[in-house]
Design a protein around this nucleic acid. Structure first.
Length: 232
DNA sequence: GACCAGGCACATC
DNA sequence: GATGTGCATGGT
């Protein structure tokens, strides 16, 4: 992936995105999501947290660890019914068991079950392949590529849509790819920046930008917003 | 009891 | 292509 042209890095949207990032970092501090040494756990976590709080996903991850199957081989060899039972706390357990199985099948075939092989793949090629795997949508693909493999790809989620459409960066109905492209156009292609930025967006969303807004002490309250609830 | 949480595939129009 | 629906548990 090419890095952002300097001309865009100095543009107004680029400066604004970085200003927002600094505000969030100052307010909430570094989030330290998913350090690189436990990468397969991050991949599994990306599925378990789909429409689910991270705390519930963690309960399921703990069960997988306790059962000794938190590895590509472990999940591959595990029966569907057993896997579903272990990940039950994360919700949608039958669905997620099926998705995990299909992902691990791809990961073993394409990467020999080794994260370093995923790291070594070209980002665009890896993303394209991942998006064809059952159960892997754009957010899950980008989460795996960024948090587990360290590729500089921006993760967009429901909070990103809600917050940055209200900030006027794109329309509320913008596609996932449009939103991702916006961040990647204006931010330098640095995995640590993308990692921390997404994590900070989630923290901001949880604290200040719920569907029913309650934005009294929002760190972005001085930014220009489409809706008063964040601005004020 | 209602609402929300770090989505995705599939059916239907 | 847009929109609706099923999938399910745990915390607040």
């Amino acid at each position: 992936m090419k890095s952002t042209p300097l001309s865009r890095q100095g543009s107004r949207p680029a400066r604004r995105l970085l200003r927002i990032y600094e505000k969030l970092l100052k307010t909430f501090g570094p989030q330290g999501w998913w350090p690189a040494e436990i990468s397969f756990e991050m991949m599994v976590g990306a599925f378990l947290t789909q429409t689910t709080s991270w705390s519930n996903a963690e309960l399921a991850l703990d069960n997988l660890k306790a059962a000794g199957i938190l590895s590509p081989e472990g999940i591959s060899a595990c029966r569907h019914s057993t896997l579903a039972r272990l990940i039950r706390p994360s919700g949608y357990f039958n669905l997620k068991a099926k998705r995990l199985k299909s992902y691990v099948r791809w990961f073993i075939e394409a990467c020999d079950g080794k994260t370093e092989n995923l790291c070594a793949m070209d980002l665009a090629e890896a993303r394209s392949q991942l998006l064809k795997v059952y159960g892997v949508g754009p957010e899950t693909a980008d989460s795996i590529l960024l948090y587990a493999a360290g590729h500089p790809t921006f993760v967009v989620d429901a909070y990103t849509r809600r917050i940055f459409s209200r900030l006027g960066c794109f329309k509320e109905k913008a596609s996932y790819e449009e939103m991702r492209a916006y961040f990647m156009k204006y931010l330098p292609a640095e995995r640590q920046l993308y990692n921390e930025y997404h994590a900070l967006i989630v923290v901001l969303g949880k604290n200040h930008c719920q569907p029913r807004p309650q934005c009294g002490e929002c760190p972005l309250r001085r930014e220009r917003h489409t809706y008063r609830q964040i601005a004020d």
